[in-house]
Design a protein around this nucleic acid. Structure first.
Lengths: 358, 358
DNA sequence: ATTGTAGACCAAAACGTTTTGGGTGTCAAT
DNA sequence: ATTGACACCCAAAACGTTTTGGTCTACAAT
């Protein structure tokens, strides 16, 4: 009497799974032939193929992924490390982006290894560890820095990756990015048209590439509109709502406060709105405030936020697809993509500045 | 001249990796002995162990995870399917929870398979597919329903899982949950103490277990305070800020509107604040509004939101740890955990009702 | 002299695929 | 009669571990 295997005893949900060998036995062919039949190789006769497929579905055959992975020397897993400080981050950007890559990945048969690490040494170590232990087939990077050690490392080792965002000081690599410079120029142009002259900029740390781009957009936009860029109107936050709040209070407390504030992201813009309101200002009438990203919250804030739209979910999907293309060798050298964002005008910027220029 | 392997040619980052065989050759022992030495088995002499470990570190040996997984018949992967409609969800709950499980999982050597599926047929199919193809060793469930087909399915098949949230109509299973009934009772008690008598409840679909619990808390809290539960004060939203906004407008437009609104989550509470403000009300003075969850946004809304705190990140870590305990057999039957939440009083509920009861 | 025991080691099997490098038989052209 | 081409098939190797089921030696107890 053959004893029930130990594994089976411990893990009752493991239906004694059927293997290629079982199919082979059933149809009286070799394992090789069965494997090749199921993969539709053309050195298997149509009759045999039909027979094998029939038997496979009768037995309820499901290939063992682990065996396939060992043989192929692939993990079918994509790495994604969120560069964030501390656990209490809630940037909606990440959840939406993750939904994009997650869904696309499952569609393509890939898993995702998720972790969070604060930018810096520890982060890079995580990348190194994961690369060296063959945990993933490729990486997805977000929130690129102007001088990005992750990209440098991956480029050096030749490890596959795709980034959401550009960087400086490296050779070419596959990325998707939105044209933040253009987007912010749209914002400034719009505000200038409404008659605003003192337009403040609520930026983000400039080592972040996207923050840099958006700031450039602000500067160019001001030039374009023939407006001076007063350094006292330029400030830097840390992308959180809380900091947007505080930096805005500072701006409002200057001798000649701005009539408009262009924030580098929606979260800070929402903080800016709170701050303006706490000073008794009517946002949209007394002061214009704009964001960037068009997160779902922007639509239902009070007042609704004028902002720049980024299709984050779709970008996640694209990035994932590109990476898989690289890994499988289908598109070893994909073209990098730069998306043109569009302005979404809502009520937070009003329709005319309080003190029109004309 | 031995040709460079094809794999190596295609994937240059793959350092011709060192295997047990290489170590075995170097120290002049068998592969078995090397393996057992590295795992500290006691049928290997101390000298050999030292020798092997020395050689392993000299050669820079890193075990091949894929081979280990095949041999052990484990994927070292945890499944996590977000039950959400459409890609544009931004509930900060998810990103924070995911950070919790993600970090704990990498710490314990596990990957995570992430996907999103709207609750229903398609969702259950995803679970079935993943279970049957051995993609994961266990599942993490969130946002449990009162009648939850996922839990039923997993319980039937005996597949390992841990849920964040309880359910009804099933046998016992491992979960972590917060006592939402208690939390909401705290809120109502607080509002009642401030003198509110017409306290509205902004609930969520009652098939969601946590929504049901919170509603029970509201009802019991009202009873406790000796207040009547007027059905016209009870309404149901879909947990988004937008819906909180709309449902609040409806409440405010009734003949005798509430003086306080207790929302089932922070996002809806933020919508409620927007709605009240758009009606010209001063939140905290003219009307009290409370949330539930204590998402980071709650702290910096205008006015800051009174809410109930849930340590989501920590819960994520706990859930992950419990699941791994089950999978490895270390804690096959972990105790389920029910956490007592605490009230966080901020300005959105003011300090006294407009029309105090006394 | 035999038996028992413990310590150190290892060959081979196993995990379940895919790939390599053939083989066999048939038919047509030489 | 040989050769070549073709269609179909397969044994064995490979992927790199862990586990199984031993063996062999030395030494102590009988």
């Amino acid at each position: 009497m053959k004893p029930v295997s130990k594994t089976f005893w411990l893990f009752p949900w493991r239906q004694m799974s059927v293997t290629l060998k079982d199919i082979a036995r059933k149809v009286g062919k070799s394992v090789t032939t069965v494997s090749r039949a199921l993969h539709d190789y053309d050195d298997v006769s149509p009759e045999t193929k039909a027979l094998v497929r029939q038997a496979a579905s009768e037995l309820g055959y499901i290939p063992n992924i682990l065996a396939q992975r060992l043989q192929k020397q692939r993990t079918d897993t994509l790495g994604f490390i969120l560069p964030t400080f501390g656990p209490r981050f809630s940037d909606p950007f990440f959840s939406e982006f993750l939904a994009g890559i997650g869904n696309k990945a499952t569609e393509l048969g890939y898993d995702i290894l998720v972790a969070t690490r604060p930018p810096g040494e520890e982060e890079l170590r995580a990348y190194r560890d994961i690369v060296q232990s063959y945990r993933v087939d490729g990486f997805i990077l977000v929130r690129t820095r102007r001088n990005d050690c992750r990209i440098q490392y991956l480029l050096e080792t030749g490890f596959p990756f795709v980034a959401f965002g550009r960087t400086e000081n490296t050779g070419p690599y596959p990325y998707v990015d939105e044209d933040g410079e253009y987007g912010m120029r749209l914002v400034v142009r719009h505000l200038a048209r409404l008659g605003h002259r003192r337009i403040a900029f609520l930026g983000a740390p400039e080592n972040l590439m996207f923050a840099h781009c958006r700031k450039q957009g602000y500067i160019h936009g001001m030039e374009e509109a023939g407006l001076p860029t007063d350094p006292s109107l330029i400030t830097t936050g840390d992308l959180t709502q809380r900091d947007g709040y505080e930096k805005t209070l500072q701006l409002l407390d200057t001798p000649s406060p701005p009539t408009a504030i262009a924030a580098s992201n929606d979260l800070m813009a929402l903080g800016a709105i709170s701050a303006a309101q706490s000073r008794g200002l009517h946002v949209g009438a007394d002061i214009a405030i704009t964001g960037f990203d068009n997160i779902p919250l922007a639509e239902t804030s009070h007042p609704p936020l004028t902002t720049v739209h980024q299709p984050i979910y779709q970008i996640g999907q694209m990035v994932c697809e590109m990476l898989v293309g690289i890994i499988t060798g289908a598109h070893p050298h994909p073209e990098s993509v730069l998306l043109k964002p569009s302005l979404i005008v809502r009520e937070s910027c009003g329709t005319q500045a309080t003190a029109p220029a004309n």
